[in-house]
Structure formats: structure tokens, C-alpha cells
Amino acid sequence: MAQKRGFLNHIRPRGVSEKAMSFGYTFCLGGVSFLAFVVLGFTGILLMFHYLPGEKSGYASVTTLASVIPFGGLIRDLHFWAGQVMVISVSLHMVRVVKTKSYRPPKEWNWLVGMSLLVLTLVLDFTGYLLRGSQESGAAAAVAVHILTLLPGIGRPLAQMFLGGASAANSSTLMVYVWHCVALPFLALWLQMFHFWKIRKDGGVRPL
């Protein structure tokens, strides 16, 4: 029970320093990133009702969403732009952390969590691009598979595990769909919750 109260107190402390609330220090980049993630989750769930992964069904689903489903094009655009906003805001957030030296102890572990979230954001953006099922995304999938297979020993198993046989003809695989819609978002959400808690536990965002 004590641990639970401690967690809640760090997430929602009684007081927050004035410096921690300064817009000029943080530019609210972490908050913008999380807001973009929430928009991505909400619009992504709506898109899942009409999207079918597959060599032919992937691209057909995107076309149907854009031209047939009511507000489908708007929802897809919101999902796309929220993804780009998140990529930019997370990247700028990491630059801000480096500039303010917020990666120093005792915040070095949270810095690693932040780097993991940056990588996850980029992977989520890339897998979302693959789910378009277009010729361009197929070419990107083929390049990704080729790069992974260059890794000695584990390259081919990794390509199969993460991309599921994606190729220039079929980038919209069920494997990519599951990673993009289920596994990676839940991992990103868990890391974000831990990230926020660790920020509070380490004393907020004020300079060390």
C-alpha cells in the first residue's frame, strides 16, 4: 500500500516547482508528445475497424478509407499528422534534454528510457508507413528486410519476426499490423508511464 501511495504522490505531487512549470525551459515537448500519442491511439482504433492487412487488401483499405468511409480521410489524416508531430516533438524533447544536461545522474536511467521511446516512435512511424501497402512502402519494406538480413546470424530471424516476410510486393503483412497496432503501442504506453513517474521521483524537470 505504501508503494502505491508513493507512486501516486510522484504522479500527482502536492507541489510543483515554478521552474518545472516554465514553458521556456521545457517548451512542453513531453506533453505535446503524449498528446500526439493519445490522438494516435484514438484515431488508430477507429482506423482498425476498416483496415485489413494484406498484399491487396492493405492498399484497398487505405483507398476505401479515403474515399468511401464517412470522415475516413479526416481520421487517417489526423493519424498521419499526429504521428509526424510525435516524431518531431520527441526528437526536439531529446535535444532539450541534452542541452539542459538532464541526462546526468540521477536521471541517467530515465534518459535511457527516453532514448527507447525515441526509437519506438521512429519504428511506429515506419511500420505505419508500411501498412499503406503502396509501391513506395513496399520498396521501403524490401530495404528494411535487406538491412536486417545483413546482421550475421540473427538477421533473417529478426526480419521474419518483425516484418513477417514483407517485400517490395507486400509491405502490409499481418506481422507488421500486430506490431504497429498492439505490441509497440502498449510497450510505448508502459514506458511513457514509467518515464513520467521517474521524472517526478527524480525531482521534476528542473535543472540539476
Rank of each mutant, 00 (worst) to 15 (best):
R104A: 15
M175I: 15
R96G: 06
V90M: 14
H93W: 10
Y177A: 12
S91D: 11
L150R: 03
W109G: 03
A169W: 14
S67V: 05
T127Y: 05
L148K: 01
L189Y: 12
P106G: 07
T127H: 04
L163R: 02
G164N: 02
V95I: 15
K107Y: 06
A139P: 00
L78S: 11
L74N: 10
S67L: 08
A141G: 02
Q160Y: 11
L74S: 13
V98P: 00
L150E: 07
N110M: 04
N170V: 06
V68K: 08
L131D: 00
P185F: 08
L92D: 01
G83L: 11
L148N: 05
P152C: 05
M161A: 15
R104K: 14
I75L: 14
H195T: 06
S91W: 12
A139G: 07
A140E: 03
A188F: 08
A159F: 11
V123D: 00
F162M: 11
P185L: 05
E136F: 10
S134A: 07
S167N: 09
I69D: 07
V178A: 10
K107C: 05
A60C: 01
F196L: 13
Y177C: 05
S89T: 15
G164I: 02
L120C: 08
L148F: 12
L151P: 00
W81R: 03
R206H: 00
F71A: 14
Y103A: 07
S116L: 12
C181Q: 12
H79Q: 07
F186E: 11
L189R: 10
I147T: 15
T121G: 15
Q160L: 14
V145R: 03
A188M: 10
I154W: 13
S116C: 07
A60S: 12
L124I: 03
M161K: 08
T64P: 00
G203L: 07
G165V: 05
V90F: 04
V85W: 10
F194V: 13
F80A: 08
A183R: 13
P105D: 06
I154T: 10
M115L: 15
V205M: 06
R76T: 03
G83V: 09
K99S: 08
S116W: 01
K201L: 05
L187R: 01
E136D: 15
V85Q: 08
W81P: 02
R206V: 10
S116I: 05
T63C: 02
P157W: 02
G128W: 08
Q160M: 13
K198A: 13
V90E: 04
N170I: 06
S67G: 04
A139Q: 11
W109K: 10
S171T: 09
V119N: 01
F162V: 07
P152T: 02
T100L: 15
V90I: 14
V62Y: 05
M86C: 09
L65S: 00
G155C: 04
